[in-house]
Design a protein around this nucleic acid. Structure first.
Lengths: 312, 312
DNA sequence: ATGAAAGCGCTAACAC
DNA sequence: GTGTTAGCGCTTTCAT
């Protein structure tokens, strides 16, 4: 309607004058912030940075930015953060802290805040989520150990209120049963958090129980590293005395002594999918809640070997 | 002026009705977003998560939230991100990607955007920054190696456009001179990025030059890890044939084979300080630009030992 | 089709 | 002091 040239000159003038459309004003009017909240337990856990980058990749392309917060596994903090994020009018939420039955998530859902769980899923409620195939992953670890000849297998599980921990725990039991391996629940212990200290503590607990075992399936690489330490402290050698497997294949575990046999999860890809899934929900709050399951791959390294003799 | 009870009832009613002050409207009116932008090269580099957490700690207490972006060391991306952040009307910027002479930073400064550099500083321009004492750190590494008896010492530096790399490079040379150790610049090589691949490549380069050395001072832990790999690949042993030191003490380097001798930098604290410093600048854009220098501590582990014989 | 005006939720400036 | 109003920069609605 107006000449091309004029249009161009106007645009030029605008930029040269330093004009930038103000997203705050835009947001006020349209009631959107083009911001999404990402809630993780602790960014320092090496699984989260790649996930964050994946999320960023997707969101950025769609003009969204992420605001990140760490809950440190503290429900009160989680509540504060979630409130603050909703107060800031985030357009959606990506939550990596959810428990299998999480009132905070339920609340967000009730308020119709678009929400996607990552590395977590809800027991019920039809919440979109991105997870890896925990049962298959843990079964692969078990298969590997069984093939090496292990039959007395211990498990350090995560807190069973977390879906991943729950799925790995029950997946392992199911896999053991399927393969005719005796399930001795005194060889199963649950940690409180996925970190090295807890791995150390749980491994000691296992050893102190006095029931013989030749392998430990840990529900997280950091737990496996804790096992390394306790084993060393007790004068035991991995893999000679005890084989250990981890979960997630975080950076540098391939260079530990011994290199850790673990399950590789495509963390970046999970982040990408979570972002995509959230954008879908933002576009249509009543879109069907998809559950995206990514593949997990066993990476065999030096921490697993045939059993020498049952311990202790 | 109005009765306590009424006031309480009003507040109650407000919350029960789900009222939340709208920060978007607030921001539109006051021209503040209570948001700061944090720009890092790559969150996946283990130095950044603790820094982020430190930043978060400070900002959160002051009611600010951080939006994070990764530049992947790409100047064009950096520009896009910075534009996007300023477009979003961030109240300030924390930048970990700056070069010693960075036009983008200069531009932000010219626009009077409050800005703090972290783990970087500018050659000139009086920009507030939080850094560790690179010269002292690298000198501590050198002292340690010298005390072990090393005299032929190689250095894998970072890109010299980065202030940390620059300070470590020149700090090392100064320290060598001060101790009467011959400075052979053919034993110095600069990498392009701080990562394992570059460490591998640079170590190979050093070996291929054919000048004998018994120790490598790497400007980053990831570079040191790359050295491990090349040394192993060439049939050399660390620390028997070559001692290696890193920088930053990132997680798990204490559990490598051998455990890495490195310099511990208080990353979380640096984040906290950067946040604090930025808040100061936001409160008063013309506050004096402080340069905060945190202490660095040498952590001696298994990757350094007395020299056996000069290589190759 | 095009242009004018109202209003998003809040605060700051202004009268009273 | 206290209550009212204008207006932040944008979109959307409503006249024209």
């Amino acid at each position: 309607m107006v000449s091309e040239e004029i249009a161009l000159r106007v645009t030029e003038a605008a930029t040269s004058l330093g004009y930038r459309p103000n997203p705050i004003a835009y947001g006020l009017r349209t009631n959107r912030s083009f911001t999404v909240g990402v809630l993780v337990p602790d960014l320092t856990n090496p699984v989260f940075p790649p996930i964050m980058r994946g999320i960023e990749t997707t969101l950025e392309a769609a003009g969204y930015t992420a605001i990140l917060a760490n809950s440190d596994n503290d429900a009160a903090r989680e509540r504060t953060i979630l409130d603050a994020m909703r107060g800031r009018r985030v357009d959606g939420l990506i939550v990596a802290t959810a428990h299998r039955d999480d009132p905070l998530v339920a609340e967000c859902l009730a308020e119709e805040t678009p929400l996607v769980l990552i590395n977590r899923k809800m027991e019920q409620g039809n919440v979109p989520s991105v997870v890896n195939d925990d049962a298959a992953g843990i079964a692969a670890a078990l298969d590997h150990l069984a093939a090496l000849g292990h039959t007395r297998i211990a498990h350090i599980a995560g807190p069973l209120t977390l879906s991943t921990a729950h799925a790995r725990y029950h997946g392992l039991i199911a896999a053991m049963k399927a393969r005719g391996i005796a399930v001795d629940e005194t060889l199963f212990v649950c940690c409180e958090i996925f970190n090295v200290d807890e791995g150390r503590r749980c491994c000691a607990l296992l050893l102190d129980r006095g029931r013989p075992f030749t392998a430990i399936v840990a529900a997280h690489d950091l737990l496996a590293i804790g096992c390394y330490e306790t084993l060393t402290a007790r004068g035991l050698s991995c893999p000679r005395d005890v084989s250990v497997t981890g979960y997630n294949d975080i950076p540098l575990v391939d260079r530990l002594n011994p290199p850790l046999t673990t399950l590789r999860t495509p963390l970046h890809e999970m982040g990408v999918e979570a972002g995509r899934c959230l954008l879908e929900r933002i576009a249509d709050a009543h879109a069907p809640a998809r559950e995206i399951v990514v593949r997990t791959e066993l990476v065999v390294r030096g921490s697993t070997a045939p059993p020498r003799t049952a311990l202790p």
